[in-house]
Amino acid sequence: MSLSLCLLAASVLPLFPLGWVFNRLVASLPAGIAQGLAALILPQLGIALLGLVPPSSTWPVSWRYGAMAWATGSALLYALRALSARDLGIWTRLMLSSGLGVVWLGWCAGAPAAVLRAVAVGWSLPGAVALFLAGVLVRRVGGAYIGLQGGLATVMPRMTASLVLAALALTATPVFPAFFALWRGLGSIPLAFVPFWLPLIFLWGWAAGRLFQDLLFGDYRGERVADIGRPSAALIGLVLLAAVVLGFHRGGVTL
């Protein structure tokens, strides 16, 4: 029963290969708000399912280490796959699937459910913003394939700025919550696992760099399109600011 619940959790709190379900579910929803909400809710559902199984501290050590190794491999694989994704929707889903592996690390290390939920939000929140913006692109440009038009910063500066901030938050950049979550996650596992997680930080940076390359630089080649409105940009800014405050709070700074 416990194993079945874990496997069910791995399909919504993505762990390869069961993460296929998460990715397929999100992709099947209409681009935009629906996908963003799914990115927020599904990982929380996975954490709720994990709450139904006995705590990992009661499991044999070899099982726990096996689960850690699985989470590590899964996160690395998704990050590697994100390198070649040029569609913003696919890129975000793969990055999200990779980052949420940290939640599994926390669970294996015996972190309480409240901490796991906060860690998941650290990735889900910017992921949801990026998926929402992918929906905006699909509606206005006809697709979220970033490399197609190039230089979106010149025609959609507010959308680009919001997307850049979301991508930075998604790739565990300080001072966003994912950075602090990663620090705490890596601090709670045996040191032998750390060298396998470090290439992940490199792959995230590489994937973000490739996204920015297509998004920011060069001349825009598409038709004239409207940028997102100031209220939307302000709302995204506030959401990410709230994430920063959450990050500082989790990071241990007294505000």
Binding site: G151, A153, T154, L198, P199, I201, F202, G205, W206, G209, R210, F212, Q213, L216, F217, G218, D219
Partner: peptide
């Protein structure tokens, strides 16, 4: 300068080397 792809390319080289050094 967003208009120059070369600026972006070399900024990316710097970013990726720095990220490697962060590990």
């Amino acid at each position: 300068d967003h208009r120059r792809p070369a600026a972006g390319r070399y900024a990316f080289w710097t970013q990726i080397t720095y990220r490697f050094g962060d590990l």
